[in-house]
Every structure is written in C-alpha cells, then in structure tokens.
Design a protein around this nucleic acid. Structure first.
Lengths: 343, 343
DNA sequence: TATCATCGTGCTAACGTTAGCACTGCTGGA
DNA sequence: TCCAGCAGTGCTAACGTTAGCACGATGATA
C-alpha cells in the first residue's frame, strides 16, 4: 500500500507537506499541491482511514442492526439510509440479528471495535446488558421497536393507532368474530399492535379477547401459514383477520391461496405493510400501509445531523408516523353480500 | 474510550502485559490474565481495530457492492453472506451503486480508504478505470455480472441456458409470436439472456427477432409496466412473453393485473426469479427460479477461504449455476385451449 | 557455587496520519 | 540597516496496539 511517505520520498519533500497538500491546506503553494496530487494519482495512493482515526478522526461508517434484510421492510430502510448517507460520505454496515440477542451482542461488539460513528438499531426483545452498555457509548437511534434501556431516540410507527384503525374498519363492516395474528407481546411493537386491536374491539362493543388471537415469531412466514390454518378450523372460525407483521402476512396469503379460502366471502383480511404482490393477491389486499421511506429518511437525516454537529441537542427525540389503511378488495361485510371470490 | 493503557495504569502493570493478557498469550500468568480481564470488563474496554490494523492486521469487513438492496434477489444474497460471515467473525459493508458507475467509484474509494478485507461486487456495465484499479488491490469476487477487466473470479448463473429453456418451453407449447423483455445488452447478463432467448427461437425454427424484443433499465419496475404496454399494442401483439429481470417482472405483473389481460389465454408469461407473490399472481406465474442461496453461500465460502489462507490459489475461478423453470399456470398453448383466467 | 534455561514482565519502536511548533528566506516598513 | 511579518516547508510527537528484545527472579543442572 502506498503511503504519504512514499509520495514524499519520490518528490523529495516531507510527509507533512504531502499530507497538507492532499488536504488542500492553504499554506501549501499551488505548484506543490499539483505535483503531490499528480504523484498520488499516478501511484494509486488511497488514504488510510484507520490511521486517520487514530489521530482522533471519527469513522465514516454507520451501522444498521436489523433482524433480517430479506424482510422487504428492512431492505427498504437500508436502501433509503444508504442513499442518504452516501450523499454525506458515510458508508453503511449491515448487521443481522435474526432476533437473537446473543447475535445482536456479537455484532455490537464488532461494531464497537470498529468504532462505527453511529448505530441505527431495531433491537431484539430484551437486549443483553452488555449490548446496552456498548450502544450507550455511541450515537444511536432505535427504529420501530423501542427498548427503554436504550435511550429515548426513537423513530417508529404508531402501532396502536394503526391496528386500531384496521380493526375498526372490520368492526364497522359488521364483523364480530375478528382474529388477530401478530408478533409476541414481548416485543414492544407486538404489545402495542395487540393493544390497538383490542381497543378497536372494545370501542365496537365486542369482547377484547374471544380466543381469536395468535401470537408468535413475527419474522416467520411458516408460522403465518400454520397459525391461519389453526384459526380457520372449527365451527366458530373468525370471519375477519387482522395481521400484525409483514412476514406473517406473506405466510397467510400463501396459505389462503393454497386452501382456496374465499376472500372476502368466507374471510375478510387486513394485511400488514404493503409489499409488491399485495395489490394483485386475490381481490387485492386491504392493508396497513407504512411510511417506510419517510421513516428511513427521517432516521438518516437525524443521525447525519447528530454526527456532523457536536452532541448538542441530544435530548429525547421520537418521531411517530401513523400508517394508513389501504383499502382494496379483501374486506367486506361478514354475510358476504360483497362480491366474493376464491383466491 | 478506554485503552489498554488505562487498564495498565489501574492495575499498575505495563500495557504490553495487558495486551498479551487480552490476547491470551501463554507467557502471561493465569492470575494476571484474570485480573486484566476483570478490569477490562469492568471498565468497558473495547479493543480498537483501527490501531490493530495499523500494526498490519487486516480488517474484518467485507463489502457487498450491488445495484439495489430492495431487489429481493440481492437482499437474499446479502442475508446469506451476512450469516456465513458472521460465523467467521466478519462484518458486512453494504454499498448500493444504483447501476451508476460514478456512484460505484465513490463507494470503492471509500471501501479502499477503509481497507476492507474483500469485496463482492455486482459490477455496473462499464466500471470506471479507477474502480478497476481499486478492486485489483483487494481480494474480490464478481457476482452474477462479469466484467473482463475485473479478473476471473466469478459466481453466476448460466443466463443463456436459463432463458433458452424458458423460451423453449413457450415454443414447444406452440407460440410463434414470443416477446422478450430484459436488461440492456450492455450488461453481460443482459446480452447472455437475450442470446438464450434467440437461441431457443432459432432452434424452434422461428426468426430470432421479430420485433418483440424490448430492452431497458433492468431495475425499473416502471419500465416493465411501460414496456409491456407497448408490446401488447397493435394487431400482431405477441402471444407469449419471457422476462429477463426480477424488477421488470414485478412491473409487468402489476400492469397485466391492472389491464385485466387474460393469462394464459391472451398471453403466456414466464417470469424471472421467484419472489413471494409470484405463486399467487393470477393463475400462478411460471418462472425462472434462481439458486440464490447456493450462490451466496458459495461466494461467502470462497471469499472466507481466500481471506483466511494466504493468496495461494488465486487462479481463475468461476461457478455457474443453472437456474430451473418453475412451472405454474401462466403458460399454455397460444390458442387458449387451456383454462384462461383474467388477472 | 557458578551457569543456564525458564517464567513473567517491561521497554521501545513501529504502523500512517495530522497538528503544533520551528525554521528559512523574502518583503516591506521604521 | 534592522527587524517584524509572512509564505512555504520541515521536524516531531501523538493516537492505540503489538512484536521484538531485554531484564530480573526463580529453580535446575553441572
């Protein structure tokens, strides 16, 4: 690897001059700068950020810690972040936790060792104590999920309100046997979504738990398939279903397609998220749309500002986006008056 | 930030001893090791990889340079890589080029400055000369696309064969007006896929270009929609369509759904890739399945081995996976004898 | 008793870069 | 004529870690 020293020796000048020329220091004459740049380019010099960091410069790497990049929700987040940060000269480190707190911890250790400038994290349900410690030493931001021990910088969705609206839509249509399939209440988002679901039921004068609630691993397509199979069994099967996770929605849609369940005739469905394919699924999936891009851009801007300016305004910051109900064909009154169609 | 020096001072020993204790050097007594580890843990010491790198250690970061992480093909790749590398103690840096060679160059500059240990890249059509230079200074691996100047380490799909088979399937069904919609021939993959398409037509005794070929930006869902709109206009519209990119496929499916085109009655369709949703689109999309996981794992293993062992076996290496045709309901003979259904 | 290997530890230099200070000529004002 | 000021450059130290060498103490061997 070529160093400033190599350039200095070749030009017969000092390393200081080379360094200053390369950083466009006004004290260096234009002629010297030109010669240095010329030589640097010819010799293929690339500055060593590790060395620069040793002199106190901060890294230009921001880490994104998420459960699974294959979840298109997170890949959209990653894309938006990457785009915004590239413009500011930052690079993105990607760490997948698979919702495993020990994997999360291992990643955070590595990220700390690499002295990343900042971390955007979708934390696991109960982060390890050491993870908390490591995160606290770095500017960080929680995304979607929120764990009290990780501070109050948080960007997320109003999960309660989103699920409340989705469920209210079904209740208004006249459904009384409404099921919910979502993530475990161990996750703050899971708890909030379930709460929203129940609020809507209560407001509609329905019992807030009639045994139509299935909770489980939120990132498992397979679990979605199995759970919906269980829900639809039996004489008192629900006439409507609200979902609380993208991956579960994918599984449910696959299963309903395969079983040929008539939607919305036999079952009305409200999905979670708005993936490519949701619009052409059966009669079109009514779903809870999430402002992913806006959130990601918000995160990026917040963190960039936080990293550029000294830690001035590090007070609590939360940004809550509402989510919106996208109405398509998969919801109708329970008696099936609306056109019903097998999927 | 806590350093080995802080630990040394607190324990009244030298930094050398601390360093050795932390790296489990056999020369240090167990008692000292214990005290050092204790102190390090208490004080929240995290080794500084930048400093370690200055002493010649290599970084533990591998970069993945791709057009767009939202493309689920690439997110699957990223996931598999990340998983495999985490197990070996490596971290993943994510760089999106958006198929822009200048963005690609900027990323490669940053990656070089950060002294990444290796790079896995899906190169743009014509990488910048400086990009080539930068890549050559680092162990790297081309994925999917292959540019001659970037060396001969390459993992990819047999695009020619995949498209040939897909097209042959349609020709065998009796289609004579078969259209292709894919990426530009500027991209090696685009060229190969088009060649495969034409091979199948020739083998079936059909003219290998009857004006049913549309090439364009392969990552643009919108372009897919527009292109299929153009293709279906006019009296001699094709009766079958083969696709050569995932994003284009997504666009085409959306457009066909919206326009209510009968598939496979009016048009038989073979998609590219196998996304969630392809199975429930209309009658089920017949599509070209890609061995994404296998490829990603192959890449990861190759690069890990390359990074662990000294640059011994750096000869040309290519791995070609075939791809497989997934038969579903979207293809049928052109006269529409098969059950036709509007999507 | 003298010599020597062994164990555990300390000192120092080096990695590449940058910031502070020092130095050399030169110009211009007193 | 002398000195202040300035432009342009060089020297040196420092960042945190690690490897090479050196050192003192202990126990074993001749």
């Amino acid at each position: 690897m070529i160093t400033t020293r190599d350039i200095a020796e070749r030009l017969g000048i000092s390393v200081s001059t080379v360094g200053r020329a390369l950083s466009d220091d006004p004290r260096i004459s234009e002629e010297t700068k030109f010669r240095v740049r010329q030589a640097a380019s010819e010799m293929g010099y690339v500055g060593n950020r590790a060395a620069r960091m040793m002199r106190g410069a901060s890294s230009n790497v921001v880490a994104l810690v998420i459960p699974d990049i294959r979840n298109s929700f997170y890949s959209t987040i990653a894309h938006e972040l990457s785009k915004n940060m590239e413009a500011e000269g930052f690079q993105l480190m990607l760490s997948e936790t698979d919702d495993d707190r020990m994997v999360e911890l291992r990643h955070l250790r590595e990220l700390s060792a690499n002295r990343v400038a900042g971390v955007i994290i979708v934390p696991t349900a109960r982060p390890h104590a050491e993870s908390v410690k490591l995160l606290k030493a770095v500017p960080h931001l929680q995304l979607l999920r929120r764990h009290p021990s990780l501070g109050s910088q948080w960007f997320g969705v109003d999960d309660h309100e989103a699920l409340r609206r989705a469920t209210a839509h079904l209740v208004t249509l006249g459904h009384t046997r409404v099921a919910y399939l979502g993530g475990p209440t161990e996750l703050p988002t899971g708890a909030e979504r379930l709460r929203g679901f129940r609020s809507a039921l209560s407001e509609g004068g329905l019992p807030d738990d009639a045994g139509y609630t299935e909770l489980g691993p939120p990132s498992s397509v397979d679990h979605g398939r199995q759970a919906v199979r269980r829900l639809l069994k039996g004489p008192d099967a629900p006439t409507a279903l609200v979902l609380g996770s993208i991956q579960l929605t994918l599984g449910v849609l696959e299963e309903l397609s395969e079983q040929g369940v008539k939607v919305p005739g036999e079952l009305s469905v409200v999905g979670f998220g708005d993936e490519p394919g949701f619009s052409w699924w059966g009669p079109g999936l009514t779903t809870i749309g999430l402002p992913i891009q806006e959130m990601a851009t918000g995160c990026a801007l917040w963190l960039m500002r936080r990293l550029k300016t000294k830690p001035v305004n590090d007070g609590p910051y939360t940004s809550v986006s509402p989510g919106s109900l996208v109405l398509r064909g998969s919801t109708a009154p329970p008696d099936g008056r609306a056109p019903s169609r097998s999927v």
